[in-house]
């Protein structure tokens, strides 16, 4: 194939990361680029950067109303427990902490427990006591989501900040006394902590959660010894 006269660039353009991110490649070229993603962390990071750049264009994408009734068909194909039709979760209230969309996505994706075979139905708890406390720790750009169920004392953390080798992220609760109390250690993939009674009592709307970077095994002193990398206040949903 004869290129146009002005295509003789002084150096070959390495835009493979952008090409892959945009989806221009197919066949062997695509396979070669995917091999580079696996072999070269810098290349993989570049691809991710391009993906985020191109994703800005999603803002421009015109919306189209989805076919009526599709959500019901999707719901049916999920099986399992039916949603309670009468009560819509008041998720938009979380907008003070993060967007409503981020909040529902957290519930659906990040905080949903691993699907388990369901036991026989148990009586549902009273509506009024079904409070959930959530917090977004860190800045708006990269919050770590936390959700706490006062009923069963379960604290779920969607992710953990990146920590150096031989360090671990530790979660703290800071209540009215201003003293940090350790709640547990976090793993990058997400953590579920069942809290002791004393810790449960500390977790009320307004309690600050904080994550610090500690030596493996957690702070040896019972108080944060490393940098605090994220904080956020619990609020009721």
């Amino acid at each position: 194939m004869t290129p146009e006269p002005d295509t003789h660039d002084p150096e070959p353009l390495d835009v493979a990361a952008a090409e892959l991110a945009l989806g221009l490649l197919d066949g062997e070229e695509r396979a070669a680029a995917l091999r580079r993603v696996l072999a070269e962390p810098a290349f993989a990071a570049e691809v991710e950067r391009w993906r985020l750049y191109f994703a800005q264009l999603f803002d421009l994408w015109p919306e189209a109303e989805a076919p009526e009734g599709l959500i019901d068909r999707i719901d049916e194909s999920l099986g399992g427990p039916k949603p309670s039709r009468t009560r819509r979760a008041p998720w938009p209230l979380i907008a003070v902490a993060m967007s409503a969309l981020a909040a529902v996505l957290l519930v659906v994706i990040a905080l949903r427990p691993t699907p388990t075979p369901l036991p026989a139905p148990v009586p549902q708890v009273q509506e009024g006591s079904r409070t959930l406390l959530i917090a977004a720790l860190g800045d708006a750009k990269s919050p770590v989501a936390a959700a706490y169920h006062p009923e069963n004392g379960l604290m779920r953390i969607a992710a953990a900040p990146t920590v150096p080798a031989a360090r671990v992220a530790q979660l703290w609760a800071i209540g009215g006394d201003g003293v940090p109390h350790p709640l547990g250690l976090l793993t990058a993939a997400g953590t579920e902590l069942r809290l002791a009674a004393a810790d449960r009592a500390r977790l009320v709307p307004g309690t600050t959660l904080a994550i610090s970077v500690e030596p493996t095994g957690g702070s040896p002193t019972g108080l944060p010894t490393g940098p605090v990398v994220a904080t956020g206040a619990l609020s009721a949903v």
Binding site: F58, W61, P62, E63, A64, E65, A66, P67, L70, I71, I74, D75, L78, G80, P81, K82, P83, S84, R87, R88, A89, W91, A100, L101, V104, L105, V107, V108, R112, P113, T116, L118, P119, P121, V122, Q124, V125, R130, H149, E151, N152
Partner: peptide, 26 residues
């Protein structure tokens, strides 16, 4: 509790659909 959670998740899932389906269908 698992059931209650599952039911809440489904309500949240519907809300997610409500918030996003027009964009994704586009």
């Amino acid at each position: 509790m698992l059931i209650a959670t599952g039911s809440e998740d489904r309500a949240a899932f519907r809300e997610l659909y409500h918030l996003t389906s027009a964009k994704l269908f586009g």
